[in-house]
């Protein structure tokens, strides 16, 4: 019954999602901020490239990536020779798949949040003598936090459910590259509906847990603010 909790698919899925969310966070913010800037040819190219996995059919994308990342592929050969890294049918392939399908959601959310931000507060910080780094850390990032959290949620959700590209790049090898999503697929394929159901519930719980976790950080600050405000009101009330 609970063997799925110790099984390889859950471990792999947790590992892959954790690392890919971390990578999406680290890569998505700078990319999102970059393409939110004033339109230029380079920005447009980056914008299109990052949006691609969002709308491109996963199977087709997976196939192209297979060609590109295979040991005879352009990048595949490079990675193999320089880093000794094999992408195809390995953990790295799965991670790459999870990362690449979720990234656009992160980038787009960050871009939208940055575009929505009042530009004059950035200018105000500059007139106050602040360096670009300080402005990024103290002004821009705190003010696009909502977009970052939404982006992470969407990216995580997309990565968790990823099947198409992982199937092609990872090969769906039991015990090695079989994620929870693929395990459900395999269970259904084998006619083991009971296992499929259990795996599906597990995957759903995982998704809900992460949503609650990420939203929690969002709402917590909101609640703290409300509590703080009401305390101030109480204080003033007592004074008068």
């Amino acid at each position: 019954m609970f063997d799925i909790l110790t099984g390889a698919p859950l471990q792999l899925t947790l590992k892959v999602s954790a690392i890919s969310v971390l990578l999406q966070f680290l890569v998505g913010i700078p990319m999102g901020l970059f393409i939110a800037g004033r339109s230029s040819p380079l920005r447009r190219i980056v914008d299109i490239l990052t949006t691609l996995p969002m709308i491109f059919p996963p199977m087709a994308l997976g196939f192209f990536l297979l060609l590109l990342l295979g040991k005879n592929g352009l990048f595949g050969a490079f990675l193999l020779q320089v880093f000794g890294l094999r992408m195809i049918f390995t953990f790295w392939g799965i991670l790459f798949a999870a990362f690449i399908v979720g990234l656009p959601f992160m980038v787009k959310s960050v871009q939208a949040a940055r575009r929505q931000m009042d530009e004059t507060i950035v200018e105000a910080a500059a007139t106050l003598g602040k360096s670009p780094m300080t402005i990024l850390l103290r002004v821009i990032l705190p003010n696009i936090r909502g977009g970052v959290i939404t982006g992470l949620l969407l990216a995580f959700g997309r990565s968790l459910g990823e099947v198409g590209i992982s199937l092609i790049l990872g090969g769906n090898i039991i015990g090695r590259t079989e994620t929870l999503s693929l395990a459900i697929y395999n269970a259904v394929f084998d006619g083991d509906f009971q296992l499929a159901a259990r795996l599906s519930i597990l995957l759903s719980l995982l998704a809900i847990a992460v949503i609650l976790l990420l939203n929690g950080t969002h709402y917590r600050s909101f609640f703290l603010n409300v509590i703080h405000q009401s305390r101030l009101h109480m204080k003033r009330f007592k004074k008068s």
Partner: peptide, 20 residues
Amino acid sequence: LPVNQRPVGFVFQNYALFPN
């Protein structure tokens, strides 16, 4: 001279306070 090296105090029409 870049903006952040000019000792000015600028008050914007929309105030531009840091919401965070």
